[in-house]
Write a protein that binds this DNA or RNA. Sequence first.
DNA 1: TAGAGAGGCACC
DNA 2: AAACGGTGCCTCTCTA
Length: 606
Amino acid sequence: MKSVGYTLKGTPISIKVAESAEDLTLFRAFVAENPVLGFDTETTGLDWWDTDFRCRLAQFGNATEAWVLPVELGAEFTQAARWALGQAERLIAHNGTYDMHVSEARIGPTIEDLAPKLLDTKYLAHLVDPRAVKEAGPGLKLEELLKYYVDQQAAEEVKGSMTALAKKYKVKKEEIWPVVELFDTDFLLYAGMDPVWAFRLFHALWPKVPARSRKHGLVSWEHRVGYVTSKMERKGYLLDADYARERSEELLADQRRWEVEAAKYGVENVNSNQQLIDAFSAFGIKLTKKTKKGNLAMDDDVLSSLNHPLADAVVKAKKAGKWRKTWFERALKGQDADGRVHASINSCQARTARMSITGTIPAQTFPAGDGFVRSMFLADEGELSVSIDYGNMELRVMAAASGDPVMLEAFRNGEDLHNLTAIAAFGPMPPGAEKHPMRKAGKGTNFTVCFGGGWKAVSDQWGISPEDAKTAVKAFWGTYTGVKRFSEKLQREARRTGYVYTATGRRLPVDRDRAYAALNYYIQSSARDITARALIELDKAGFTEWMRLPIHDEIVFSFPEDRAEELTFKAARIMEMIFKGLLVPADGEIGGQSWGSVLELENSKH
DNA sequence: TAGAGAGGCACC
DNA sequence: AAACGGTGCCTCTCTA
């Protein structure tokens, strides 16, 4: 048996590396004595769906002792890891979703086997303080949390060792994992400490979870949400690789063509704002718009206002390049052996607990105007793409949470809230008109206020004159006085305590100098919890195999063609929820085989 | 050569 | 008095 020692705050940590059958006997004794175990894996990469993907080490530990199993070396070690995962009553891991995928793909126990045992420090950390490091919070990554809650110096030392190892092996940091010697002492220390870290972090975080969150059962609830999204990740989305390749090639041709055009004006690199600024200056064009930091801006807004062939070429070249790389190339690179792609869904991510989707399918940012990008994702053979989304989700949450009578009445009567705001600001609808001529100002005001903005934001973002924007925002607060009172109440609470609590018992930190954001945090977080609740209920009702992606106020499905109508109806009824007395309705749209076809169909209707 | 910051742009 | 909230990804540029 190889062993590595480490001292954490004066306490010796013993890391044992199994090398033989005798070692595994000792390992089994350790597992038998520790029903609650920290768990982690070291792998060749992050793409657990890849055929070349391997699990190299599996680690188990408590506060002072860890065992490292070199599962890469043979079946006896994998078998021991499998046994330990079955034996343990609870498994503590940080971002355990990933390790569940690894286990299922390369060790044995499935997500269904492991999820009931999982205690994920990522959810605990989020409930304690969801703020990122750059928001002056603890962050959500393991290393960040260790620095904050466990031991700053030790965390830097151990976690920094992989950077040093990469240097030693003369590879980039992300390339170290498949090439590092399995028994490299630094690697074993890094790997062995991980379950110890997770174990200690769990015990540091547990007492800090707000009492109200615990009372509402949020800890197990978040685990349940993550369980559902991890099954969606596993299922993946069928990719139309031919479509993706064709679009990618077209975009590349497009990009090249416009780059050549830009080069005629002396711009070699369309992505270099400096080159563009120099070029336009040389043409005698005065640039005025500034960035946040006070530099000259060179965004789409500036470029399209210039009315210059160079600006036109730059916009087109940049766009083609970005779209090709971000959407199509990314998806093509992420295919598994069955032609499916797998999202990485962070079920509890933003400050408000909103989910985020990263990696192969950054679905939350897919262009929404048409099906150009979404068309590369296909429902399974014999199935249809279906999108079910909530109607006016955040505005309904705002109405219900605040109890504003005017807004509630409007929603209950099926009135158009954007029209209503326009009427309040600019007078009654002209006779015979279907829409108020100032409806856009009303809509912009409704959304912007929901986001915490004022007249300036309404004016800038919605192209409304400052005067009209001022009028509309003033009318908003004068009409929806319940929203005003609610916002003021949240702001008082935020200034006094630094937090607001949602109806689900979630504690949201609010920066005292940005207390106005409290309303938005409350709404955004409540809306997220409505979608999260739907995921759990859909899972319970047996819909998970058909679920593909959650996107804020929308869930995308692949339903068997002959049952699409029925299942869409049922799923929408499950998603719908009465939030504080107001229905948040859900409505489904059935498309063809591709996700994009849902949009095309919808667009053709209007 | 990697990392970080900045700018920009895709979305809800 | 007013206040635009939350994400992810790509590229360039500067720094260490």
